[in-house]
């Protein structure tokens, strides 16, 4: 009974189902935060959550838990028991980009707060139609 449960949990389909459900749930949380909050920092955090959800989604679906990391395969001879390295390289790049965007956004928010004392996009009024 317990053995069966463990094998079922260990099968790629189950793991991938967990990854898909979890990451889409995370994406939904991020999207909710993006729409529901007006604080600049909270919006940036929501964006970050959405990005992380996509990384988990991609990595979870593109790799098989029973295969090893690309560098630990059979020494580049048959490429049999290793995962596809492309998604991992892509995700690394995307993480770096996301980090850069986030730090830029936070530095904008800090500078904006220092200059105006505002930290909320609902208070922004410098732009727009003027009569």
């Amino acid at each position: 009974m317990f053995e069966n449960l463990l094998t079922w949990l260990d099968s790629p389909q189950t793991l991938q189902a967990i990854v898909v459900t979890g990451s889409l749930l995370l994406f939904g949380i991020g999207f909710y935060g993006l729409l529901a909050y007006t604080r600049i920092i909270k919006i940036l955090i929501s964006l970050s959550i959405m990005e992380s959800a996509l990384f988990v989604f991609f990595l979870g679906l593109a790799s098989d838990p029973h295969k090893t990391a690309p560098i630990l395969g059979d020494l580049f001879k048959n490429f049999e028991k290793m995962n596809d390295p492309v998604p991992q390289a892509a995700i690394l790049t995307a993480i770096v980009i996301s980090l850069a965007t986030m730090s830029l956004g936070i530095s904008f928010a800090i500078e904006y707060y220092k200059r105006t004392g505002k930290n909320d996009i609902a208070q922004m009024d410098a732009l727009g139609e003027k009569r």
Binding site: I40, T101, F108, A109, E111, R115, I121, M124, L127
Partner: peptide, 8 residues
């Protein structure tokens, strides 16, 4: 800065 934040 307001424009920059919105754009970002």
């Amino acid at each position: 800065l307001e424009g920059g934040i919105k754009y970002l």
